[in-house]
Amino acid sequence: MEQSVETVFEDDRWQAFGLEALTGAAAHAVFQAFGLAGSGFMISLLACDDARIAALNTEFRGKPVPTNVLSWPSDERAAEEPGGVPDLPEPGDQDDPEELGDIAIAFETCMAEAALQGKDPRHHVTHLLVHGILHLLGYDHIDDEDAALMENLETRILAGLGIPDPY
């Protein structure tokens, strides 16, 4: 059994972009990095545009602007100490997978950032998906110690996918 990502496409450009394949590879790489083998987990992904993510960003973060990716973990998994490693969730089974949470990703912002930063758009989107999945697992970048831990994990996971250091 592999991890499951349930994708809702509100913006058809994501389908043409190949988001499902990138999401599957990103999720597999994250779970593999933690030795979770990707079994028994569910992630919900909203593939949307800037208008939709701006509305979500306003509603949930009080920031009325588009952003690249947002995440909503199903449980609080963060470590108690800055720079600490969050507790890994236990996988569910095929009939009742452990729900890790929801991610939303915005097409225009992701493409504009990739162009501005001179990055391959698929590499940039994969980085943002890895970033979002790490948030669902309890990682964050609120303080310097947590940011360093998360960035190092992202860099290592992306390297395993053949993607250069995004930082």
Rank of each mutant, 00 (worst) to 15 (best):
M1Y: 04
E2D: 14
S4K: 15
E6L: 12
T7Y: 01
V8K: 10
E10Q: 10
D11N: 13
R13L: 02
A16R: 12
F17N: 06
G18I: 10
A21E: 15
L22Y: 01
L22A: 07
T23M: 13
A25W: 03
A25R: 15
A25T: 09
A25Y: 02
A26H: 07
A29R: 05
A29D: 01
Q32I: 00
F34R: 04
L36W: 00
G38C: 07
G38I: 06
S39G: 09
G40E: 03
F41W: 07
F41I: 06
M42V: 02
M42H: 12
S44Q: 13
S44E: 14
L45T: 01
L45D: 02
L46A: 08
D49E: 12
D50E: 02
D50Q: 00
A51D: 13
I53H: 02
L56T: 02
T58K: 15
T58Y: 08
E59M: 12
F60C: 04
G62Q: 07
P64D: 10
P64H: 07
P64V: 05
V65R: 14
P66W: 03
V69M: 11
L70M: 13
D75Q: 15
D75Y: 09
A78V: 11
A78T: 14
A79G: 06
A79T: 04
E81N: 03
E81A: 14
P82G: 08
G83T: 00
V85K: 08
L88D: 03
L88H: 03
P89F: 09
E90N: 00
P91S: 05
G92T: 06
Q94A: 10
Q94G: 01
D95V: 00
D96H: 13
E98P: 00
E99L: 14
I103L: 14
A104S: 14
I105Y: 02
F107D: 04
E108L: 00
T109A: 11
C110P: 00
A112K: 12
A112N: 12
E113K: 10
A114L: 05
A114C: 04
L116Y: 09
D120S: 11
P121V: 00
P121E: 00
R122G: 04
H124P: 00
V125L: 05
V125Y: 04
L128K: 13
I133V: 13
I133M: 09
L134C: 06
H135K: 08
H135Y: 12
L136R: 06
L136G: 03
G138F: 05
D140Q: 14
H141S: 13
I142F: 13
D143L: 05
D143C: 12
D144V: 11
D144S: 14
D144I: 09
D144T: 11
A147K: 15
A147L: 15
A148M: 12
L153W: 08
A159E: 12
G162Q: 05
I163F: 02
I163E: 02
D165F: 07
Y167W: 13
